[in-house]
């Protein structure tokens, strides 16, 4: 279920299936809504990256044992800020326990960078206590150089 590409939703809360095409369509809709709301290319790059990492983590880690379950993706886009929330049905995790992937001993490990990129590119990110829902904010005024 997707909105017409000419009129992306600026406020939605959907169940997203683990299908590459569905994921791409949803990301494109959010990015188009952001571009329509006046977010510059660099902002859209940041939002796409954070969104990709959060959805990937939800399916890959959160739904490791639930491969056919959808994840919940919610967004609200105004001309001032973008709120994104991604929630899975998995057991959650402790974000603080994720080791620093840039440390010398971990630099050659091929995983563990998604959370770092989400933090780097969004104004704020916050997990719930269980660690299965992340809320991310991109604030246009704060993030614009």
């Amino acid at each position: 279920m997707t909105a017409p590409s000419s009129q992306p939703r600026t406020d939605a809360d959907i169940a997203l299936d683990n299908e590459p095409e569905a994921i791409r369509t949803t990301q494109d809709e959010i990015l188009k809504a952001a571009a329509d709301a006046g977010y510059a290319e660099a902002a859209c790059f940041a939002i796409r990256l954070a969104l990709e990492e959060a959805i990937y983590n939800a399916f890959r880690h959160g739904h490791k044992e639930l491969p056919h379950e959808p994840v919940r993706v919610a967004w609200r886009i105004t001309d001032q800020r973008i709120d994104l929330a991604i929630e899975d049905k998995g057991p959650g995790f402790e974000p603080e326990a994720v080791p620093d992937p840039t440390s010398e001993e971990r630099l050659e490990l091929p995983h563990g960078r998604g959370l770092m990129l989400m933090r780097a590119y969004m104004t704020s990110i916050e997990y719930n206590d269980k660690g299965n829902r992340v809320e991310m904010v991109f604030d246009k005024a704060t993030q614009t150089p």
């Binding site: 790059f45 796409r48 990256l49 990709e52 990492e53 990937y56 050659e108 490990l109 091929p110 995983h111 960078r113 998604g114 770092m116 990129l117």
Partner: peptide, 16 residues
């Protein structure tokens, strides 16, 4: 135009 941490992981696997 875009890549993700999963792509970086693949590059590291190639590097190794």
């Amino acid at each position: 135009d875009h890549l993700s941490s999963a792509a970086l992981g693949t590059l590291i696997t190639i590097h190794n």
